[in-house]
Simulated scan of single mutants.
Amino acid sequence: MSILNSSALRPSSLILIGIPGLESYHIWFAAPLSIIYIATVLGNVMLLLAITTVLKLQKPMYIFISQLAFSDLVLSTCAVPKMLDIFWYNSREIQLSACITQMFFIHLMLVFESSILTAMSFDRYVAVCNPLRYHSILTHALIAKLSALSLLRAIVVIVPLPLLTLRLSFCSRCIAHSFCTNMAMTKISCADITVNNVYAMFVSLFLGPVDIICIALSYSLIVRLVLRLPHKDARLKTFSTCSSHISVMSALYVPFFFGTLLTLFPNRIPVHVHILVANTYLIVPPLINPLIYGLTVKEVRQSMYLLLQNCKNRIRLWASSRVWR
């Protein structure tokens, strides 16, 4: 593979290395990643169909879950197909415009998911602490406003990243990563990247902690109320209503902040470890979110089961009609 180097250049395409240091093992990553991606798409599509087609699931919590499923689909589809292209076929070239577009949508969906999880913590707070006014507080109009605000916040915050990247010149075409990120692209730049780094630091260290503080505040109020309940069974039942949300939050935030922590030690930890951790918080949450909600939320589980049964019956009818023909 030829690597183009010069004092400053604006190439029309870039080269994604994949997982530096583990290039010979790419083919071994390809098969499980393909299975994970297929399961991710099927799981999130089923979750979306179950929520959008069943009237009893037209409730605030399930609407937020459907938005998570949609963002998970976009997030995984932005990154995984190109990763599979690299791992299966060693096709590493990507157009500069496509790389910047991929970077934009990946960061956009991560911020959007964090915002939706924050809104869901407010939903859980109202459901536990003020259940009698739940439907009067969380109206469809308020949910629409919260969702629009979450998306608008993500767009406003992330749009500067591709704009700052577009002004850069590059000393190399090779990105030591399996997908395009702001940090990976600034590393191959010849220009002054101070503004890029400062803004990326602001996004990482300000937005995430702000969302976590809001979520922690909601759950502190929930815990305070739950501990006042006289019966243990009532406390456990109340806590169980929040278990799926807590699991989804853990799946998103724990790998993300572990990866952020690793960036503080860039020279002590191998590059491939950084890349594998980054891949984890991009691949794992979209896979396990539909599993968590499909297994732990009774209404969603029943709706997904009915959806599978309907698909199975339709396939049988189609197959029998083909046989009679």
Rank of each mutant, 00 (worst) to 15 (best):
A127N: 11
C129P: 05
P131A: 15
P131E: 14
R133K: 13
R133H: 10
R133L: 08
H135D: 14
S136L: 15
L138T: 02
T139I: 03
T139F: 01
H140D: 11
H140M: 10
H140E: 13
I143V: 02
I143E: 01
A144H: 06
K145W: 09
K145T: 08
S147L: 15
A148W: 14
L151V: 12
L152Y: 09
A154L: 03
A154I: 02
V156P: 01
V156N: 05
I158E: 05
V159T: 10
P160N: 08
L161W: 10
P162F: 05
L164P: 09
L164T: 09
L166A: 02
F170E: 08
F170S: 00
F170H: 02
S172W: 04
R173C: 13
C174D: 15
A176Q: 13
A176S: 07
A176G: 02
H177P: 06
S178F: 12
F179E: 08
F179S: 02
F179Y: 06
T181F: 05
A184P: 02
A184D: 04
T186M: 15
I188G: 05
I188L: 09
S189W: 07
C190Y: 12
A191E: 15
D192G: 03
I193D: 14
N197H: 08
N197V: 15
A200V: 10
A200G: 09
M201C: 11
V203N: 02
V203S: 09
G208E: 05
G208P: 04
G208Y: 03
P209V: 03
P209C: 00
P209S: 01
V210K: 09
V210G: 06
I212A: 00
I212W: 01
I213C: 03
I215K: 01
L217K: 04
L217T: 11
S218D: 11
Y219D: 02
Y219T: 05
S220V: 07
S220G: 07
I222Q: 01
R224S: 10
R224N: 13
L225T: 09
L225E: 12
V226N: 00
V226C: 12
L227W: 07
L227V: 04
L227M: 11
R228Q: 04
L229C: 00
L229W: 02
P230M: 07
H231A: 14
H231V: 15
K232I: 06
D233W: 08
D233P: 00
D233V: 09
A234H: 05
